[in-house]
């Protein structure tokens, strides 16, 4: 895959503006516990400093450099809306939307943006989302159920109607996350009602080989419009990918890295090298299926986007 054909379906802008302090503080808490368990008296302040060093690329120049090195042609930048649930957010969702628009325009042809708006913002949130996809040309919706709403919450249906109209996918976080948020509400099965009610909308379950992999695979097998991305494989092991590729759902599995979450563990190119090196792909997996994984499935989903009538 050195011909720059890869699409990374799961990345974020590496900037503290995108992650409220309470969110990153929880991540540091988990790291500190691990270090203390190893008998290392590293002060929490130093752990925080190391973690914060991964959030130093607000304009995605370093990400572009690593994408080029790794053969990643395009990446989907996901903008989850933490601003309703975590009130210590330093920037409003409107400001974050604008920043993502500027980053996308700074690197033409390299980024798609999936925007999240917490449904509890009501009509203001719906109007913002509508503006993002019709005027800014954003490419999909990003949901973060741990903020306090299930994927099939009726409050999300007006958003899904817009996605159905414009052919936009919905990508949702699945499973555990920063400890300041709810874990239980982010189960994959909660997509089922929405996926049934909106057969024309593609739903992507993020980290689908990491959290609840059996449930995710079941949904991919039986719901035509449910997919998974594999982001998180960097930390949770290549063996889970190997298992997923043997479940007959290779037309549903999308490559993703979750940049910059695993930045302390290496470069984007290293993660891609590890896939082959550590045996992610079963010997019987065809080249065609590998191509679907690295870019074909993503291209198919992104190609469904329709230009809004008002801008034709």
């Amino acid at each position: 895959m050195s011909d720059s054909s890869i699409i990374d379906f799961h990345s974020h802008i590496a900037s503290a503006m995108c992650f409220p302090p309470s969110f990153t503080s929880g991540v540091v808490d988990n790291m500190t516990v691990a270090l203390q368990a190893a008998g290392l008296p590293i002060p929490r302040e130093k752990v925080t400093r190391m973690h914060d060093a991964t959030l130093d690329d607000p304009w995605c120049d370093e990400l572009i450099s690593q994408m080029d090195e790794a053969g990643i042609r395009e990446a989907v930048l996901l903008l989850p809306d933490f601003t309703y649930a975590l009130r210590d957010a330093t920037h409003s969702i409107q400001e974050l939307v604008e920043h993502h628009r500027l980053v996308r325009d700074r690197h033409p042809g390299r980024f798609r943006v999936f925007v999240g708006v917490d449904p509890r913002w009501g009509m203001d949130g719906l109007e913002l989302f509508d503006r993002c996809v019709r005027e800014h040309g954003f490419d999909g919706m990003k949901l973060y159920p741990p903020c306090g709403y299930p994927i099939s919450d009726p409050a999300l249906y007006p958003f899904y109607e817009i996605c159905a109209e414009l052919g936009l996918p919905v990508l949702t976080h699945i499973g555990a996350t920063a400890p300041c948020l709810d874990f239980d509400i982010a189960r994959p099965i909660f997509v089922d009602r929405a996926a049934r009610d909106f057969p024309g909308v593609d739903f992507v379950l993020a980290h689908g080989t990491v959290h609840y992999p059996d449930e995710c695979a079941m949904l991919c097998t039986n719901r035509p419009n449910v997919y998974i991305d594999v982001s998180g494989f960097e930390a949770y092991g290549i063996h889970a990918l190997h298992s997923a590729f043997r479940r007959g759902i290779n037309h549903k599995i999308l490559f993703g890295t979750d940049w910059p979450v695993f930045r302390l563990q290496g470069r984007q190119s290293g993660f891609i090298e590890r896939l082959e090196r550590e045996g992610a792909f079963p010997s019987e997996m065809s080249n065609r299926d590998k191509e679907l994984f690295f870019h074909g499935n993503a291209e198919r989903l992104l190609a469904k986007k329709r230009i809004p009538v008002s801008t034709v």
């Binding site: 790291m31 590293i42 130093k46 190391m50 302390l264 563990q265 290496g266 290293g270 590890r274």
Partner: peptide
Amino acid sequence: MSLRLDLHIDSVGLMTLAF
């Protein structure tokens, strides 16, 4: 040797190493 590919240093490992 590659820190990540050869020595399998992860995020906690990198902090341990710095310390």
